[in-house]
């Protein structure tokens, strides 16, 4: 692996305009090696644009995105080679088996991997001969994570990895994210599920109108809110409706 540089991601005053809409309006943050960094915010807040600038998918109008010491605008290919990417919309070749898709993507990075081993990391080894179109939503998301892991990435970007998944599949994906973190990767994810952020992220940036309006650990953010004298409207319950649903339908995956 490439030499370790900490912080592994440095975003400095990123700005991006689409015609008359300012999508990213001066975003700066740092991500430490080994942490799960969450970007939260409503739709259209600029999360995806920010993440895509870091991935080398889009050019920023100004500012710097530095991944593991390499500025994306100087060498986007080198950055792409050492990161793993799960886009918000993922699509893979049809008519190929999952193992062939993983193998093909590994070759695009000139990486030598065992496709079945990669698939087993995301729990898809039993579907290695299936085609992409035959997968359920959760399986598709897990495949796209498997593909993002082929080059043993320094940073893994996950853009809304659990949107549209049922609670079972969501929980399974959380476990997967923790496992990948435990294996030593740094993870940047976007989400608009607060419980997901609380569950997974070491630190959170809240994005609104193209700007970061808060950045801290989930606990610190909650403490800050409480210190202003904030009282939740309802008494905190011991269980959530999510727990009820999972209790009724079981934790087993439906695919």
């Amino acid at each position: 692996m490439t030499t370790a540089i900490d912080p592994v991601i440095v975003a400095k005053d990123l700005r991006k305009k689409y015609e008359d809409i300012t999508a990213v309006n001066g975003i700066s943050f740092e991500v430490r090696r080994g942490e799960v960094f969450g970007m939260l915010g409503p739709n259209g807040a600029g999360k995806t644009t920010t993440i895509e600038i870091l991935e080398g998918m889009r050019d920023a109008d100004s500012g710097d995105a530095i991944i593991n010491g390499i500025n994306v605008k100087d060498d986007p290919i080198a950055v792409k080679a050492m990161i793993g990417v799960q886009l918000q919309q993922n699509a893979f070749f049809d008519k190929l088996k999952l193992s062939e898709i993983v193998d093909l993507y590994a070759k695009l990075y000139l990486a030598k991997v065992d496709p079945v081993e990669i698939l087993s990391r995301v729990g898809l080894d039993n579907r290695k001969n299936a085609q992409y179109a035959e997968l359920s939503g959760g399986q598709k998301q897990r495949l796209s994570i498997a593909v993002a892991l082929v080059n043993d990435p320094v940073v893994l970007f996950l853009d809304e990895p659990t949107t549209g998944l049922d609670p079972q599949a969501r929980r399974q994906l959380w476990e997967l994210v923790r496992k990948i973190q435990a294996d030593g990767a740094t993870i940047v994810l976007t989400t608009h599920y607060m419980e997901e952020a609380e569950e997974l992220c070491d630190r959170i940036a809240v994005v609104e109108n193209g700007e970061i309006i808060a950045l801290d650990t989930p606990d610190a953010l909650i403490d800050q809110l409480l210190s202003t004298g904030f009282k939740p409207e309802k008494r905190v319950r011991e269980a959530t409706l999510d727990d009820v649903f999972l209790n009724l339908t079981g934790h087993d995956l439906r695919d």
Partner: peptide, 16 residues
């Protein structure tokens, strides 16, 4: 088809 499905976009995220 690859373009409208986003297959090409996913390829753009690789170093090729």
């Amino acid at each position: 088809r690859f373009k409208s499905q986003g297959v090409l976009r996913r390829l753009k995220a690789t170093p090729i």
